[in-house]
Design a protein around this nucleic acid. Structure first.
Length: 639
DNA sequence: CTAGGGATACTTTAGACAGCATGTC
DNA sequence: CTAAAGTATCCCTAG
């Protein structure tokens, strides 16, 4: 099937042809046969780089009205925005938490790219543009199975289906075990394929050789180990060096940030590629120790990538790699599911990760996503993914990751926090005013589809009484309504637990002496909330932090003897302290050094604090109260 | 007396979405 | 069922 045979206008056909797209890939053809270009609902479970974007564009361009493209990450939203913006005569908008298209109403765009939470929020707040959509494409739908965020995506899709008649839904998924369940939930045709434009072989390394799944093998020359050498690391170094010397780029995945950096340092010693001026460019982006370390490695063609990096550094590493100015990136799983960063070879040194109580195998889906980054269409003759193991683990790795299918996608809606959030949002936004009404909405979720025998009425009633106790909902006979507090909580997009914590903070503040209410007070409230990221509190720091908490005890809304979990509270105090010092003009360099956090960690906490302080200010309004400190600190956080 | 080796105890550990409304220039 | 690498500390010994 050819592009010119599709129901596309001449402009689009020539756009694609001038980009070298004339013949459809098999999965794309299958999607067309399933009806994507004729308003049909389709779930496509196909590998990355097998032409998902084209399927999405086809659906949105042939739909009779505006399209919405839902992504899980802000960086992905920007990437897709730029891609769609290339389409001739198509007006593209973007809407994410940190960036919104101009003043224009989103309804005026042909295509809007947005994160799933942003769409959920728009629906909750009654944005009218949503109703006029003709086509919605969901990228990475398998995230339905992600705790916390999956339920939001379920609700968004359930609500969109109910509110927009004849909506065309297209969902793009990684290869998972039960795509048919997702397809039947969405009442869509399933297109499944493992076809890739660049062939991929996956293998396991042990004893100086890689055994690939296609039966081939690769001898790897690993120099004799010194006493301090780690076998897995040296094997990884050899595998990376081999890929780079033969003209390819390589991604190496490891367990932790620290190890990503130390592997990068180790590879930098190898002098794999000629020195460039990339290091100097990175140095201009800012002067933390992490940034300097990155710049040093980058001048030898090796980068590292993890969430401790500031987002500008991360973006710079991604771009430099795409432009082939970096030969290698050593990364934590950040890079597995983010923006498009394909390489000739992918080496996965660590397959286990610490999860809080034990070392656990990384999910098969995640490993497959990492492997899927191997092979650049049009640039590499093939892609290779190598799992580093040894004689003892070889067979288990083959069985677990090379031969196994990815896990099934299971609903995570059955979680109190998620249930509270969505029961409240359904009532607050006026989509239901009774338990039966909420159940009716929930009946359209993936959860209800998967768990047909669950007693939704009992579950919802239970959650309703919880929300009633939290003063978020009132019950009058069988009529539910949101309190001012409940509707503000929902609109501000904070979880009910966060809303309740802020409310109790405000009430305590009303009882405090004026001189004790300070910026620290405002930050403590907001940082003691589940919507704030917690900050690791080291053993050595604990005593100092305790001291700090005692010194400022009068300014806090939590009495030290009464904290539900003292450890958690002390962690919140640490976050509040960092943010307070930041608001007082401390530099990133100092804070990163003093509290042993990454520059990116500070960045993300500042971002959240801005959001939560704004929410706290709005909740004050719902309580007929005013705590100017919420606004005052907030103003000091952003430069 | 001290530098340094080595055993041992202790510390640390991936990622990242989200708001708003009223008056004013 | 299930951790492992990195770092600080301390003690001992060789010079």
């Amino acid at each position: 099937m050819r592009v010119c045979d599709l129901p596309l206008s001449a402009d689009f056909v020539s756009h694609y042809e001038s980009n070298g797209i004339e013949e459809l890939y098999p999965p794309q053809e299958a999607a067309v046969e399933a009806g994507v270009a004729n308003g049909g609902r389709v779930v496509a479970a196909i590998p990355t780089a097998s032409g998902k974007t084209f399927i999405a564009e086809l659906a949105m361009l042939t739909a009779d009205g505006p399209g919405l493209y839902i992504v899980p990450l802000r960086a992905l939203a920007r990437e897709k925005y730029e891609t769609f913006d290339q389409l001739p005569g198509v007006n593209v908008g973007i809407s994410t938490g940190d960036f919104d298209s101009a003043e224009e109403d989103l309804g005026e765009y042909d295509i809007v790219v947005a994160t799933s939470e942003k769409v959920d929020s728009a629906i909750r707040n009654g944005a009218s543009w949503v109703e006029s959509l003709a086509c919605v494409v969901v990228d990475e739908v398998h995230l339905l199975g992600a705790p916390g965020r999956g339920p939001t995506l379920e609700m968004t899709l359930a609500t969109l289906q109910r509110r927009v008649p004849d909506l065309q839904l297209v969902a793009l998924s990684a290869t998972v075990d039960n795509p048919e369940t997702i397809a039947s939930w969405l009442d869509a045709e399933l297109v499944e394929s493992t076809w890739r434009p660049v062939s991929l072989r996956t293998g396991v390394y042990s004893d100086e050789s890689v055994a690939f799944d296609d039966g081939t093998s690769l001898a790897v020359d690993v120099p004799p180990l010194g006493p301090k050498d780690d076998a897995d690391t040296e094997a990884t170094v050899s595998l990376v060096a081999d890929a780079v010397t033969s003209g390819g780029q390589c991604l190496a995945f490891v367990r932790s940030r620290r190890e990503a950096e130390s592997l990068a340092e180790r590879l930098a010693e190898e002098d794999l590629s000629p020195a460039t001026d990339l290091g100097d460019e990175l140095r201009e982006l800012g002067g933390t120790a992490t940034g300097a370390h990155l710049a040093d490695c980058a001048s030898t063609g090796v980068g590292f990538h993890h969430a401790g990096l500031r987002s500008s550094h991360r973006a710079a590493v991604e771009t430099a790699f795409r432009e082939r100015r970096l030969a290698v990136i050593c990364a934590t799983p950040t890079l597995a599911a983010g923006v498009n960063v394909p390489a000739r070879r992918v080496v996965i040194r660590d397959q286990k990760r610490y999860t809080g109580d034990a070392m656990e195998w990384i999910p098969v889906l995640d490993v497959h996503q990492m492997c899927g980054r191997a092979g650049r269409p049009h640039l590499d003759p093939y892609g290779e993914a190598v799992l580093v193991g040894d004689e003892a683990t070889h067979d288990e790795l083959v069985e677990r990751y090379v031969e196994a299918d990815a896990e099934a996608v299971d609903s995570q809606f059955d979680d109190r926090e998620s249930l509270r959030t969505h029961v409240l949002s359904v009532v607050a936004s006026g989509f239901a005013d009774s338990v039966a009404g909420v159940v009716d909405v929930f009946a359209a979720t993936y959860y209800a589809h998967q768990q047909a025998d669950v007693d939704l009425t009992a579950l919802v009633s239970d959650v309703v009484s919880e929300l009633e106790r939290m003063e978020m909902l009132t019950v009058d006979g069988s009529t539910l309504s949101a309190t001012t507090l409940g509707s503000q909580t929902s609109r501000q997009y904070v979880s009910p637990t966060t809303g309740a914590r802020i409310v109790s903070g405000i009430r305590t503040i009303q009882t405090m002496a004026d001189e004790n209410v300070t910026p620290r007070t405002a930050l403590e409230v907001v940082c003691d909330t589940p919507d704030m990221l917690d900050t690791y509190l080291g053993n050595r720091e604990r005593a100092l932090m305790y001291q700090y908490a005692r010194t400022h005890a009068a300014e806090f809304t939590t009495a030290m003897g009464e904290a539900e979990s003292f450890e958690d509270w002390l962690t919140a105090v640490k976050t509040a302290r960092i943010l307070h010092e930041w608001s007082q003009g401390e530099t990133i360099e100092d804070l990163v050094e003093r509290y042993r956090i990454g520059p990116g960690d500070l960045e993300s906490r500042v971002e959240r604090a801005e959001w939560l302080l704004g929410a706290a200010d709005a909740l004050c309004g719902a309580l007929d109260s005013d705590v100017p400190e919420f606004r005052e600190v907030r103003a000091l956080l952003s430069p």
